[in-house]
C-alpha cells in the first residue's frame, strides 16, 4: 500500500514515479486537449465555449489523476491518459484547421 523506506524493489519505485508523471503531465495534456475541444466545438458563443472548456478541464485532470493511481500497472496509466489524448488531439487539430479563416 505504501512504499516503506527499506525493502521495496526498485521496479516498484520506478513504477510509482512513472504513475506520478503520467498523472501530472499526461493528465495535464488530456485536460488541455479537452478544454481545446470544448472551446472549438461547443455550440456556444466564443468566450462561453472557452470558459466551459477551462472550467471542465480540471474535472478531467482530476479523473486522470485518479485513473493513474487506481489502474493495475504504470503502463495502463500511460495508455489511459495518452489514448484519449490522441483521439482528442486529432479532433482538435481538425477543428482548428477547419476553423481558420
Amino acid at each position: 500500500m505504501k512504499p516503506k523506506a527499506t525493502g521495496l524493489p526498485l521496479h516498484y519505485r520506478l513504477a510509482v514515479v512513472s504513475r506520478c508523471l503520467a498523472a501530472l503531465l499526461g493528465g495535464y495534456v488530456l485536460a488541455s486537449l479537452t478544454s481545446v475541444c470544448l472551446a472549438l466545438l461547443a455550440p456556444l458563443p466564443q468566450v462561453d465555449a472557452v470558459l466551459l472548456g477551462m472550467m471542465l478541464s480540471f474535472v478531467v485532470y482530476l479523473l486522470a489523476f485518479l485513473w493513474c493511481f487506481a489502474c493495475r500497472s504504470a503502463w495502463q496509466a500511460w495508455v489511459g491518459v495518452l489514448a484519449p489524448s490522441l483521439v482528442l488531439g486529432v479532433i482538435d487539430a481538425l477543428a482548428y484547421w477547419t476553423n481558420l479563416p
Binding site: 488541455s32 478544454s35 465555449a49 477551462m54 472550467m55 478541464s57 480540471f58 482548428y96
Partner: peptide
C-alpha cells in the same frame, strides 16, 4: 481557486480559440 487562475494554468483553450 482553479477557476480564478484558469486563464494562467489552462490557457490552451484561449490560445486555440483566440
Amino acid at each position: 481557486s482553479l477557476v480564478l487562475f484558469m486563464y494562467m494554468v489552462m490557457p490552451a483553450g484561449i490560445l486555440a480559440s483566440y
